[in-house]
Design a protein around this nucleic acid. Structure first.
Lengths: 114, 114
DNA sequence: TAGGGTGTTCGCCGTTCAGCGAACATCGCA
DNA sequence: TGCGATGTTCGCTGAACGGCGAACACCCTA
């Protein structure tokens, strides 16, 4: 039998990150996720990088890894990013087209950050 | 002599509401203003009404007038509305085109409120 | 199998925010 | 001149949020 339903073949043995169903993310959750400057920095960095290029610890933000981990959870729950385990690292991808389809214009606004 | 420089002729003797310079409103302020459900209800109601039609007390929201007054101050500081005194009442106008020019798509997103 | 690297979780702290009642200010009108 | 209506301001409270260190879990490699 397969290990557990939550794990894809070859995936990490860590708990697989739960990714939000974009259609069920409230607008309020999306707005609050993007209202924080640390989280916007993360999103902007991801937008300027290739998918799965960035591990969680590779972002230049002035917080400890504990706080950083919490920010990633919030971004995940808002449907803004997808995570994949690669060895001890957790790689990230900005869910740009999905988020754009759900909240048109919002991500671009956060990226411009006027 | 004129009453005070802050008062236009015929305006209220109350402190004139200070309106934000849209160009200087940070994105974060706008996002946080629209993240609250009570404030989104106010904005949506204003969008479906004529300019200067609605007084502050005329909104169907489940909060006391003290709380309501604070919500209006936050919306004003975010550049979302303009207020004008008319007798004892304070009338409101949604600054739709100005806000749209500053944060394209954001207001429409808040109005649709999916 | 021991250890370094990576990320999460837990408990705690201080700040911020939405809510309230009470008091105050202003306006129009009786 | 007084009074009702309308908003604002002032404390206060409880909840939520961002921050931290410590402890834990997992992966890879020596």
């Amino acid at each position: 039998m397969t290990p557990t339903p939550e794990r894809a073949a070859g995936a990490s043995h860590r708990a697989a990150p739960l990714h939000a169903d974009l259609d069920q993310v409230p607008l309020e959750t999306a707005l609050l996720a993007l209202a924080d400057p640390v989280r916007r920095t993360i999103v902007r960095t991801l937008a300027n990088a290739a998918d799965w290029e960035r591990a969680c610890g590779s972002f230049d933000v002035p917080v400890t890894k504990a706080t950083l981990s919490r920010h990633f959870a919030i971004l995940r729950e808002a449907g803004l990013l997808e995570q994949r385990d690669a060895g001890p690292k957790r790689l990230n991808r900005l869910r740009r087209p999905e988020f754009e389809a759900r909240f048109p214009g919002l991500l671009e606004l956060a990226l411009s950050d006027r």
